[in-house]
Design a protein around this nucleic acid. Sequence first.
DNA 1: CGTTTTTCCTGGCAGC
DNA 2: TGCTGCCAGGAAAAAC
Length: 281
Amino acid sequence: MPELPEVETVRRGLLKIAKGRKIAAIDIHYEKTITNENIAWFKENLIGATIVNVDRRGKYLLFCFDNQMTMVSHLRMEGKYYNLPEDGEIHKHTHVVFHLDDDTKLCYSDSRKFGRMTLVKNDEALQVAGLKTIGPEPTAETLTVEYLQKIMHASRREIKPFLLDQSNVAGLGNIYVDEVLWMSKIHPKEHANLVSDEQIEQLRDNIIQELAVATEHHGTTVHSYTNAFGNAGEFQNHLHAYGNAGKPCERCGTPFKKIKVAQRGTTYCPHCQILTENEND
DNA sequence: CGTTTTTCCTGGCAGC
DNA sequence: TGCTGCCAGGAAAAAC
């Protein structure tokens, strides 16, 4: 499940192979991937257009073209881009193929078919659902202590779904939320407004630090497979909580527990991460 | 309006 | 081996 570090890694891979390339033709094998109501319009506007940049906002990729159009792409759980020679055989679950002007093709595959892409005019890109309400990027400049304290004081939601909500902070997903909560010694079911200001400061530092370091390591590889962009990451070797249910916490030796929080599988240390008010785990 | 639940999908895996 | 059933999960949509 690509989160910010994985999407950033994909973006850098895309820049290398696609920047400056013109789209010669497009094959669409699964139309629901494209959310534009008019698929023909999507194709017409992209064919002949040149990719001038690939940007990112949270987990969204933004392909910028020389005709003042932007293609917004979200990988959701399984979306992957990969590049083949023009005569190469596409992988299973490939839903969209962009034929480029250098005798290669840029392919999008997605075994669960959850990923989406949409084409809009540049000035409408930030009005796309999801981007319209997205929260700040998790950097020292954009995610301030004051902001995080303000929105956490105002919400009684459990901290885990609160952090997964992209309108609060952009870029976190299930893996990195479990990590930063463990690092900050906050129980995943703790209510946001009950977290102390000191803990919020730590949480903010951990979010910024963790995502930056994971990006340096090219993200986390969950599946064993392929040369698709973003799958070369090795940050899975640096995870402390996620995927470690039953194994001892490296701080205190207590076995990690796995529970459900807001429908999401959640791993935490029952000794280090304590609820302030309720006693139920 | 804030929060919770449901929905979309299919590979993988447990259980029989 | 093959079948059924269930789970995983990001974010939009629907429901509360």
